[in-house]
Simulated scan of single mutants.
Amino acid sequence: MSPVPPPLPAVILEPIVRLALSEDLGRAGDLTTDATISPDTKMSVVIAARKPGIIAGLDAAAHTLHLIDPAMALAIEKPDGSTIAPGDVIGRLDGTARSILTAERTMLNFIGRLSGVATMTRTFVDAVAHTDAKIVCTRKTTPGHRALEKRAVRCGGGTAHRYGLDDAILIKDNHIAACGSVAEALMRAKAYAGHLRMIEIEVDTLDQLEEALKFAPHAILLDNMDNDTLRRAVGMIDGRVTAEASGGVNLSTVAGIAETGVDYISVGALTHSAPNLDVGLDVV
């Protein structure tokens, strides 16, 4: 599995966390806490797991607390990438009750959502562990949260794919249709790309694959092929380029896809369909 990545830098986290907090605090702040809790009240709480899974999103949670109260810090007991069981303590908070209660929901939202992504990723990674195939995510991410969700995939043992339209060339079926052919699309891409730009092309048939191989792209995306066709495609590629499979991938199909010999399997569900992992904040 891929190593757990470091926390995202503050310059990436801050605008995302500020938007989440401003959405919650609105124009008047935390009315309930301000009305019921005196400024000098102290609390000791834990963030605890309600369900088993893989933890992610503690960098965003810690930054949430920092923006609410720079004097407080989240003491992490189960770092991102950790396997947790119900009842496990993920982190501890001691300090001003107003700060903790105001930050609580946004912190838990980040942890729950991103741990859900990491947990689903781990189930896919485990399903193909008997092969050399690696699980990657796609650009099917929550708008504005791509950096967080892509990091959560890595916390779950998945590997990185392109982050956006600007870091690699991926020629898809509609690009091919607009260009007129696989060959034309690849010729244009090769003429445009610098020597450090990766080029991948999506193919739907073995005829398209044969055409694409003549231009030696860095990778070929084998889209919506059944397993027999994938095996034939892997044989045609014969290690000359990276082979990635996509389309119709779920937990019941991923092992069979991996066993065809592809190098990577892209799974949109990791980010667009992962359920939240249930975590809560308990007073101690």
Rank of each mutant, 00 (worst) to 15 (best):
A152R: 01
P86E: 05
R162L: 05
P7S: 02
M236L: 15
M43T: 13
I100Q: 09
I100W: 00
I111F: 01
D69Y: 07
I37D: 03
A20D: 10
R188S: 09
R113I: 01
L213G: 13
A219K: 10
K78A: 15
D34A: 10
A193V: 03
S22N: 15
R188C: 06
R50H: 11
A191P: 08
I68Y: 10
S273H: 07
A48I: 01
P217Q: 10
E200K: 04
D223E: 11
S246H: 04
E14H: 09
G144L: 04
L281F: 00
R113E: 06
L221G: 15
S82T: 10
D228N: 09
E23V: 13
V234W: 15
P15K: 01
G87L: 04
L270H: 04
D132I: 11
A274H: 02
I90Y: 09
N109D: 01
D166V: 15
H63L: 14
V11S: 11
G194F: 06
N224K: 06
L186Q: 08
L270C: 12
R151K: 15
G235K: 14
V262F: 06
V89P: 10
I90M: 03
A129P: 07
I12Y: 06
L251M: 04
A48H: 02
L251S: 03
S252C: 00
R232P: 15
G248C: 03
T141R: 03
L165W: 02
E259V: 10
P6I: 05
G261C: 07
D80W: 14
D204Y: 05
H161A: 01
A118E: 09
S266L: 02
L8R: 11
G112V: 06
